[in-house]
């Protein structure tokens, strides 16, 4: 017989409390509880409500990791409460756990947040199939297994908001669509039946709201409880933007990505100064002059004639010639 005996641990939960109707400021309340190795965070929240304080509020529904309602944060870690074992969290953070809503500034009551920003972004990417359906089709609209694989499980998203509220750009830029909306957009961009690829991509490529404002921190990949890997879809959307021949915004962000290929072709390595000039243009680059001068004084700027080159540069150039898929 396997030894699967249940263990118990004393854990202190510091719980975010706030009632937007009556409280001026939020506060944290401590609950010390014995927690078994079988309990998930949702069990803990239930016990706080049932045993300690009936006014404690949170969302819950399916209890099976499907509805996404019970998403919270524990010590800053995105947590789907019904899936996350409490002992597992104490292994990471020790025996004091801080239970907070996904976004403290959006709290309405305790763990319940105003998620309207999430749904606005979700709606903004036209999260549905846009297709001219023939009312009297003569054959089925077939999707091959290979074509459905291209969705890369983006359709498994449960819209819990874990990645959205883990994203630092969402926190700082209210126009940014955010990783969950990008996953949803990708789900339809990668769908062969959809006829609005170009229009949707155009919106996804806009500065401020679109994929170019992603900081590549991988918080979304870490946060997703369904292992959807949103940043992988964001990269795919970047690729699609370059592949869509009709979208040539020719903005700083696009030139910045292309600039790497130019630089590698010339030196093998990245020419940092030239990348900034190429991305910003001859006038835009001027705003970087003050910082560049400070760096120059400290020996942090390599002048063009001193630019180092990779050994066997001809190999690199041959590979760029033979392996390039994108054209710009």
């Amino acid at each position: 017989m396997e030894n699967n005996s249940v263990t118990t641990k004393s854990v202190t939960f510091k719980v975010f409390r706030f009632n937007s109707d009556t409280d001026y400021l939020p506060y944290y309340k401590e609950y010390k509880m014995d927690v078994t190795s079988e309990e998930v965070i949702l069990d803990v929240m239930d016990r706080i409500k049932w045993d300690h304080d009936g006014s404690f509020s949170y969302r819950r529904s399916c209890r099976h990791g499907i509805c996404g309602a019970c998403a919270v944060q524990v010590n800053g870690k995105a947590t789907l409460a019904c899936k996350m074992n409490a002992h597992e969290l104490t292994n990471i953070f020790g025996d004091e756990l801080v239970l907070e809503p996904q976004s403290t500034k959006r709290s309405i009551k305790d763990m319940i947040i105003d998620k309207s920003d999430f749904w606005e972004k979700h709606n903004a990417v036209h999260p549905y199939l846009i297709s001219h359906i023939d009312e009297h089709p003569e054959m089925e609209c077939a999707v091959s297994p290979h074509e459905s694989e291209n969705l890369m499980e983006a359709d498994l998203c449960i819209q819990c908001g874990a990645c959205h509220y883990a994203c630092p750009v969402v926190e700082l830029n209210e126009d940014f669509f955010g990783p969950a909306a990008f996953v949803k957009a990708y789900r339809f961009e990668a769908d062969v039946r959809d006829d609005a690829h170009h229009e949707r991509l155009e919106e996804l490529g806009q500065a401020g709201q679109g994929v170019w404002d992603c900081v590549k921190c991988f918080e979304c990949a870490e946060a997703c409880p369904k292992e959807i890997n949103p940043i992988e879809k964001i990269t795919k959307l970047h690729n699609m933007l370059f592949q869509d021949g009709n979208i040539r915004n020719n903005g700083v962000a696009e030139r910045h990505a292309v600039g790497f290929a130019h630089s590698i072709k010339k030196h093998g390595l990245l020419d940092e100064g030239e990348l900034v000039r190429y991305s910003e243009g001859n006038i835009g680059v001027l705003k970087h002059v003050p910082v560049a001068l400070k760096m120059f004084k400290k020996g942090k700027i390599v002048l063009p004639w001193n630019m180092p080159k990779s050994d066997k540069l001809d190999e690199i150039q041959a590979l760029i010639k033979s392996s390039s898929v994108s054209k710009y």
């Binding site: 990269t235 970047h238 370059f242 093998g268 066997k312 590979l319 760029i320």
Partner: peptide, 26 residues
Amino acid sequence: LSEASCCGASHLQDYDDFLSLVLNAR
């Protein structure tokens, strides 16, 4: 590794994922 090229710094792959793979594999 004096032969090494730039890794693409998480941007080249946005432009050309396959090229980025080939250069990093090299």
